[in-house]
Design a binder for these strands. Structure first.
Length: 463
RNA sequence: GGCCCCAUCAUCUAAUGGUUAGGAUUCAUGGUUUUCAUCCAUGCCAUAGGAGUUCAAAUCUCCUUGGGGUCACCA
């Protein structure tokens, strides 16, 4: 069975880059009928892990990703780690190191001064004398001193390191006994049965260390997929400074989760010329081994385009629900919902914008844009509007946009004028400015009485 | 700096030794529209550089250059 996992460190919210690796892990697990697990890496006890986990679950819920089984908290697994530390100590695969932090710093400085690689010198590796007083020893694992370490990465291919270049006997437990990251990651992945580790390629250089732990403990290695980073416009790793990195901020900005997921899955991965992917399509098509090797730059333009696309293709019912729940905007009645949203959903880049467009239609204008008035109200505009009011008053069964359209057509043919002669002044009268949806739709949305009232008010104010 | 990774339009990417190097976004222009947006059409724009291998290189090899990541008793 394929088991993947997402293992964020608790920073308080779900990062957009994290969502991408989570999505990819999720897709691959689901496609193979496997499991997608969630683990919170909170070995640093000073941070509030409960809150962070909640924030991540909330974001998962918003985008529709579901993890299997209970969330695993590393902070609750001290006993597990302690057991393995003891085991390694017993087997002579790890040892206590009594070097003080000052000594360590000193060693590093000397090495730096000599332009050597900074590394632990292994002075306690085979120590059997009397340990110095007053030092809480750290536990170090015996790492190979020489030899080649090869990662058979599902994305990068064969990546090879020399032990002498990168390894030393690294710390697996601190002076206070708490275990360190590279140690617990390996243990948890192995114990949780993770078969494929899909994560950012900033972890590539951690992998050899984790492999040392796997080997020492006799665990089977998972398949690694190191996904290239997402960069900002400057080509650097995306960071908080780059603005919207919190997934939930995208909800606030009015993005649809399907747009965000579609955008993220296309970063570094493609299926021919296809741009639009439903979650179902991703589920049948995605394969981590076809992810690109190079980093991609985060460019919001394409997200905007996708978001507009998904809004246009949403049902009015779905939009109305969202508008109500997230923006407190209510559209009343079946007709208004259908006609109004049909007219507006083609014009909004995001849900926030859509929400803001609505009052501009259903509320009467309180003022008239000066430029628009100047452009629209010349010659006999007033007379045309008055004639139109008369026409509407005598008309029956005005309901759909086409009904109003017929009225406009009739008027322009009777008066022998162009469409613009009625369209432009009418637009100013009903909306207060140029721009916006077709007048036939607007009239159908606000209805006959309101239409007449708005025209009369405009005629009165502007003549 | 050591180690590792990467390199096709501005951006996301396609082309797994043979294509006029394709698509999408952005941008520009035109059309549609009473207006704006949408939509449609058209256009602009790329194989980082240099050696090799080959009948043939974006694609394979090497070098250079450039970019990124990582080097903790953080995760």
């Amino acid at each position: 069975m394929v088991v993947t996992r997402f293992a964020p460190s608790p920073t308080g919210y779900l990062h957009i880059g994290g969502l991408r690796t989570a999505l990819l892990s999720y897709l691959w697990a689901r496609r193979n009928g496997g499991k997608f697990l969630l683990r919170i890496e909170d070995t640093d006890k000073s941070r509030n892990s409960e809150e962070a986990a909640l924030a991540i679950v909330e974001a998962f819920k918003w985008v529709g990703l579901e993890h299997d089984d209970a969330i695993v908290y590393q902070s609750a697994r001290d006993g597990v780690y302690a057991k393995y530390i003891l085991q390694l100590l017993d087997e002579g695969k790890a040892y206590k190191c009594y070097m003080s932090k000052d000594e360590l710093t000193e060693l590093r400085e000397t090495q730096m001064a000599n332009k050597e690689r900074t590394r632990y010198d292994g002075r306690y590796r085979d120590f059997d004398g009397t340990p110095p007083e007053g030092i809480d020893p750290v536990i170090r694992i015996k790492a190979p001193k020489t030899g080649e370490i090869v990662i058979d990465d599902g994305i990068k291919g064969r990546v090879s390191f020399q032990a002498e270049d990168i390894l030393d006997d690294f710390i697996i437990a601190r002076g206070d006994g708490s275990p360190t990251y590279n140690f617990v990651v390996a243990i948890d992945d192995a114990l949780m049965g993770v078969t494929e580790v899909i994560r950012g390629d900033d972890h590539l250089s951690n992998t050899p260390k984790q492999m040392v732990v796997y080997r020492a403990l006799g665990f089977d290695l998972p398949k690694f997929y190191h996904v290239p980073m997402i960069h900002n416009a400057d080509g650097k790793k995306l960071s908080k400074r780059d603005g919207a990195t919190d997934v939930m901020a995208y909800k606030e900005m009015g993005y649809l989760p399907e747009a965000l997921l579609n955008f993220l899955v296309r970063l570094g991965w493609s299926n021919g010329d296809q741009e639009i992917f439903s979650l179902d399509e991703m589920l049948t098509l995605f394969d981590p081994s076809s992810i690109n090797k190079s980093a991609s730059i985060y460019n919001i333009d394409k997200l905007d385009w996708l978001n507009a696309h998904y809004i246009k293709n949403s049902t009015n019912t779905a939009l109305a629900t969202l508008l109500h729940e997230s923006y407190g905007v209510n559209v009343h009645g079946h007709d208004q919902k259908e006609i109004l949203l049909d007219a507006l959903k083609e014009r909004a880049k995001n849900m926030k914008e859509l929400a803001e467009l609505i009052p501009g239609i259903i509320e009467a204008p309180t003022e008239y844009d000066e430029k628009a008035v100047k452009k629209a109200f010349k010659d006999d505009a007033i007379a045309v509007l008055e004639a139109f009011v008369t026409k509407l008053e005598s008309a029956e069964l005005l309901h759909l946009p086409t009904d109003y359209h017929h009225q406009m057509e009739a008027l322009v043919s009777e008066m022998e004028i162009g469409f613009g002669k009625i369209g432009m002044p009418l637009r100013v009268a009903l909306l207060g400015s140029m721009g916006g949806p077709g007048m036939d739709s607007v009239m159908a949305i606000i209805g006959k009485d309101e239409t007449i009232a708005r025209i009369k008010k405009a005629v009165e104010t502007l003549s």
